[in-house]
Amino acid sequence: MAHINLNNQFPGIVGLMHYRPETAKPLNELAEILLRGESTLTSAEREMIASYVSHQNECHFCHSCHGAAAAHHLDGDLSLLSDIKDGFRKTNLSLKMKALLNIAKKVQILGNRVEPDDIRAARDEGATDREIHDTVLIAAAFCMYNRYVDGLGTWAPEEPEAYDETGRMLAHEGYLKSIP
């Protein structure tokens, strides 16, 4: 049960978006730009950053939704959610993506933890300034989304299969379709 009366039975941020549709619109627009907009990082890579940061923040709902979206951008295998939790031990990530995830983790802890060596390591692996920028912005935005979802005590299904349809919808239809 959420900390406030949302007057709906929707889980996670979905319930919050139905509670305040006027804030749902800009939040979804930001997610659409960050995770599906023009970028040299694939949508799967950007969803993995969002899911990874959400897992680090212990936000089960966001980790599961965005991990499922990443899975649907790839092969649809929801075991990716467990692999994200395990630090991508099975997923074949490029060295560039590993360097960007390192930056995302540092942003998740505290933005000023990102050091010049972290940026240099990402650049050495081929990351562009835009990719570094977008990684930092995705990580920062998901810290906000995670705190919004968990700060109001929303509920989230435990089983990964409960996120399959949401992940498919986010990957193939986007975030603007989910505005109440």
Rank of each mutant, 00 (worst) to 15 (best):
A2K: 06
I4D: 00
I4A: 07
N5V: 14
N5R: 07
N5H: 08
N8D: 09
Q9R: 05
Q9L: 07
Q9W: 02
F10P: 00
G12K: 11
G12M: 13
I13L: 14
L16Q: 02
L16I: 13
M17W: 11
Y19E: 06
P21S: 07
P26L: 13
L27Y: 09
E32R: 04
E32D: 10
L34Y: 04
L35I: 10
G37C: 05
G37Q: 06
E38M: 03
T40C: 03
L41I: 05
L41C: 04
S43I: 01
R46V: 01
R46D: 01
E47H: 12
I49K: 02
A50K: 03
S54G: 05
S54Y: 09
S54K: 12
S54V: 10
H55G: 09
H55T: 10
H55W: 14
Q56M: 13
N57W: 04
N57A: 13
E58S: 13
E58I: 11
C59N: 13
H60T: 12
C62E: 13
H63M: 15
H63I: 11
H63E: 14
H63S: 06
S64D: 07
S64F: 06
G67E: 07
G67D: 06
A68T: 04
A69I: 06
A69H: 03
H73T: 03
H73K: 09
G76F: 11
D77I: 09
L81I: 15
S82I: 00
I84F: 02
K85P: 00
G87L: 13
G87D: 09
G87S: 08
F88A: 01
K90A: 11
T91S: 02
N92F: 00
L93W: 08
S94Q: 06
M97W: 06
K98I: 05
K98S: 04
K98Q: 13
N102R: 09
N102V: 05
I103L: 09
I103W: 05
A104H: 03
K105V: 01
K105N: 01
K106T: 09
K106L: 14
K106Q: 12
V107N: 01
V107P: 01
I109L: 10
I109A: 05
G111N: 08
N112Y: 13
N112D: 12
R113M: 12
R113A: 12
V114I: 14
P116Y: 02
P116A: 15
I119W: 02
R120Y: 06
R123V: 15
D124K: 08
D124T: 08
D124F: 02
E125S: 01
E125M: 04
G126E: 03
T128I: 07
R130W: 12
R130I: 13
R130S: 09
H133R: 10
T135H: 04
T135I: 06
L137F: 05
L137H: 02
I138C: 06
A139H: 07
A140R: 03
A141N: 14
F142M: 15
M144R: 04
Y145E: 07
N146H: 10
R147P: 03
Y148E: 04
L152I: 13
T154N: 00
T154G: 00
W155G: 07
A156G: 09
P157H: 09
E159D: 14
E161D: 12
E161V: 15
Y163Q: 09
E165D: 12
R168W: 14
M169F: 10
M169I: 15
G174W: 08
G174V: 09
L176E: 10
K177D: 08
P180K: 11
